[in-house]
Design a protein around this nucleic acid. Structure first.
Length: 364
RNA sequence: GUGCCUAUGGUUUAAUGGUAGAACGGCGGGUUGUGGUCCCGCUAGCCUGGGUUCGAUUCCCAGUAGGCACC
């Protein structure tokens, strides 16, 4: 259940989304807990950053630990001890990037995707129906249709084929979703939300066509897939702006994998409601810390740099997290030099808190 | 003390009679539906003194240092 409360003059959609595991105010950012955990950070610390919802991944959890374990645990919420909302990604992105990078890893047809597990080389099949079944077995609050996620270098003809396949698969996902809803008797706030993904690369008319046909099928929300960049690697914001306009006002708009703080800030002003991205955690693990100035103005630092060896100022003196106020940058520098997990954790927390404060100012 | 072996960036090493590559380290950068292990730049070296040679890090001699064996 999603309701828009107000659209600000800047274009930000302030709304409320109710799920079986709590309400979320839009716009919001979800850290990626791909394999059922945010790397190196425990759930209690994640909550203290202001994080309310996480993204898990169908593909990764299906391969490891497998559905049997998660079913026996009583669902993914219980398994990972996360009581807040969870969204599962369909696994489309993972399977497709796996196969696009290395054709040996699998085969894509209109009917299905067959792929080799990167873990043990075992063969698996993924279909739109199966992706939805897995997501029901996980027991998440929000799920995503399996889509055909094209690599950036695809030409128009290939993009068009990906769009056609994405639409066809979304239809099959919706059908399986309705079957599962009925069978499980899920209604009201117990009913998970279903998102479809809009593809089309940088071709606006393909994005429009994809969006139009998906809206025809009808979903709770629509995702933007495959972040478009030009040949220099510059993010093509205009495609996001135009695509937002193709989505009905009362549906959720999910910008998958977006992005840097400024990407999120700009996309929220285009009317995108939901974001997930690995940047704060991955870059944190590699030593990049975001630093708030007067948000949305911000900076960043590389804690590996020699200049921090003797910098005994706090990691972030304004943090709500005691550990980020207490520990010095020199100490964090030391932890990084020794590649100590505690350092990666502190940096991840710093960045997650930064992302949540960015979202806070968008809600104000 | 005698004999043998070794000596190349900060460290571990490769190749070579026409002045040297790598890995790690150091310095900096990257990362967009996860690479905790990843990627990309940059930095920095032939032990000393003689000899042979057009030319020696390379071959020869001595010195120095280290290792091993024996006394």
């Amino acid at each position: 259940m999603f309701k828009i409360i107000k659209v600000t003059p800047a274009g930000i959609r302030r709304g409320l989304l109710r799920t079986a595991h709590g309400a979320l105010a839009t716009p919001f950012y979800m850290p990626d807990a791909t394999r059922g955990f945010v790397k190196l950070v425990d759930n209690d610390a994640i909550r203290r950053t202001g994080t309310e919802a996480l993204v898990v991944n169908t593909f990764h959890l299906y391969l490891q630990p497998g559905l049997e374990v998660i079913k026996k645990a009583g669902g993914i919420h219980k398994f990972m001890d996360w009581s807040g909302p969870l969204l599962s990604d369909s696994g489309g992105f993972q399977v497709f990037s796996l196969i696009h990078q290395n054709k040996q890893m699998g085969r894509i047809s209109d009917q299905e995707v067959v792929f080799k597990s990167p873990l043990d080389g075992s063969r698996h099949q993924l279909t739109p129906e199966k992706s939805i079944q897995i997501q029901f077995a996980l027991g998440v609050d929000m799920m995503v249709c399996l889509d055909d996620c094209p690599p950036n270098e695809f030409e128009r003809a290939d993009l068009e084929r990906a769009v056609i396949r994405t639409i066809a698969w979304a239809k099959r996902c919706k059908k399986e979703y309705e079957r599962q809803i009925k069978r499980r008797g899920l209604r009201g706030s117990k009913r998970p939300l279903l998102f479809a993904v809009i593809q089309g690369g940088a071709e606006i008319d393909l994005r429009e066509r994809c969006a139009r046909e998906l809206v025809e099928i009808g979903f709770d929300g629509y995702g933007f897939g495959a972040r478009p960049v030009d040949k220099q690697g510059n993010f093509l914001e205009e495609v996001l702006r135009r695509t937002a306009g193709f989505i009905p006002r009362d549906a959720l708009r999910f910008a998958l994998g977006i992005g840097t703080p400024e990407d999120i800030y700009r996309c929220a002003r285009m009317g995108w409601d939901m974001f997930d991205c690995v940047i704060p955690t991955r870059e944190g693990r590699h030593g990049k810390l975001f630093t708030a100035e007067r948000l949305p103005r911000y900076g960043s630092l590389n804690i590996n740099n020699a200049k921090f060896a003797l910098d005994f100022s706090p990691i972030n003196k304004k943090s709500r997290l005691a550990e980020l106020r207490r520990h010095s940058r020199a100490y964090l520098h030391h932890l990084f030099r020794l590649q100590e997990g505690l350092g990666h954790k502190l940096a991840s927390l710093n960045n997650l808190e930064f992302y949540q404060s960015l979202m806070d100012i968008l809600k104000k």
